[in-house]
Design a protein around this nucleic acid. Structure first.
Lengths: 127, 127
DNA sequence: CAGGATCCTTTACGATACTG
DNA sequence: CAGTATCGTAAAGGATCCTG
């Protein structure tokens, strides 16, 4: 993968566009927002709990997404010395700063279903 | 792809999580937010302009993403009867309701670079 | 100019099994 | 329980050529 210093901004008005690109590079994939949203709601979750909570995800994907998020300092992974071992995941302070984004996305999702989805209910446009 | 009536909500507190899932299903991929962000800034853009604006995207992907967005009524495609023909893309009213999300994402991206990126500058964590 | 057709490579994602 | 290994499919992404 190429990487050009996380889009070194240029024309100023492009800063905004590049910021969007940066953010989305970190939050890429079907699952990241969903995982973060769950952790925002439940504070701490273990692997199996996340597996149930983030519905549809498989163990491999979850594992990989959690590693991505941890590398970007958005979540913290804590191994508890229990037997058999358990692991807790929680948002870091930085992860919590995603709150406003998650809020807007959730808000829009709710509205979208109400105002727009019925328009294409009979078509396949949302599939 | 399966589809279960766009996650018919259940326990109430899960509405929020499911709304996130719904939204992200419509806005999947690396490019959608980027495209919408560009259209939000420039009002109207032609295919070639988008190709330049959404940096890194190829013609095939752009074409496909634009179709997705149009199917979901987020953008409008207008063919102008010029010669050679030109096409304009712009946000619909519904597309414009994504404004707050885009704003938060852009805002976070700017902050993220300032506060967090330098922490992992020497590692590969963002690659 | 706006894109579709084709071909090919690389990730993303998923199901099943297996280990500390 | 918390994952990794392995295998396989489906999309993403790129290059080149082609058409209205």
């Amino acid at each position: 993968m190429k990487k050009e210093a996380l889009s070194s901004s240029s024309s100023g008005c492009k800063t905004r566009i590049l910021a969007i690109k940066d953010t989305m590079e970190i939050l890429t994939g079907k699952w990241k927002f969903h995982i973060i949203g769950s952790l925002m709601l439940f504070e701490k979750l273990r692997f199996m709990e996340l597996l149930r909570e983030v519905d549809g995800i498989g163990a491999k994907m979850l594992s990989k997404e959690l590693q991505d998020l941890e590398m970007n300092h958005l979540i913290r992974r804590t191994v508890l010395n229990t037997k058999p071992l358990t692991v807790e995941y929680e948002l870091t302070d930085c992860g919590r700063t995603l709150g406003p984004i998650i809020d807007e996305i959730a808000k829009w999702g709710i509205t979208y279903r109400k105002t727009l989805y019925h328009k294409s209910e009979t078509s396949e446009s949302l599939v």
